[in-house]
């Protein structure tokens, strides 16, 4: 049980509980924001677990989540646009907080891993995660307003 696993436990437990509460209660706007939060909470947790267990192969899981998590949020943003048109789901404070925490985790891991191919992979995952998080939030906050039935 080292520091990395402890940090991963905090990320999984705290982020997971907050996302679960958001996804099960409230108006559709809050639910899709919580679904978006899932990706940005769990992807750094997977990176921390990869470092904590000493298994660099687990980083592939974080890469896939950074790529496909925002795609899942875009699915809901597009196909629930009727429900969301009444009330835009914008939570920019939460988005930027999650982005900053994710960036902090990636930087800490890059320092621990040292220069090389593994660091480049971590930086790519960090860029995909933060970019995807911001774009998914933009999509939820009215990105599909003009789409009718498509």
């Amino acid at each position: 049980m080292n520091g990395w696993i402890l940090a991963a436990t905090v990320a999984l437990g705290g982020g997971g509980a907050a996302a679960l509460w958001g996804v099960t209660t409230g108006p559709p706007a809050r639910r899709v924001i919580a679904q978006n939060l899932t990706t940005s909470a769990f992807c750094p947790a997977l990176l921390l677990l990869a470092q904590g267990y000493g298994r660099p192969a687990y980083v592939d899981l974080a890469l896939l989540l950074a790529l496909l998590g925002p795609v899942g949020t875009l699915v809901f943003a597009r196909l629930l646009s009727d429900d969301l048109s009444a009330q835009d789901a914008s939570a920019w404070g939460l988005t930027w907080t999650a982005a900053v925490l994710g960036a902090a985790a990636v930087v800490a891991l890059c320092v621990a891993v040292g220069p090389g191919r593994a660091m480049v992979k971590l930086l790519v995952i960090g860029v995909l995660l933060i970019g995807g998080n911001v774009i998914a939030s933009r999509a939820l906050a009215g990105g599909f307003r003009g789409v009718r039935g498509g």
């Binding site: 999984l12 996804v23 919580a34 899932t38 997977l46 989540l65 899942g72 629930l80």
Partner: peptide
């Protein structure tokens, strides 16, 4: 539709459990 949202969260959580 709401169930789909919870299932998406559950799917990611299960992946974390398997890891």
């Amino acid at each position: 539709a709401r169930q789909a949202l919870v299932l998406s969260f559950l799917g990611t959580l299960l992946a974390a459990l398997f890891t």
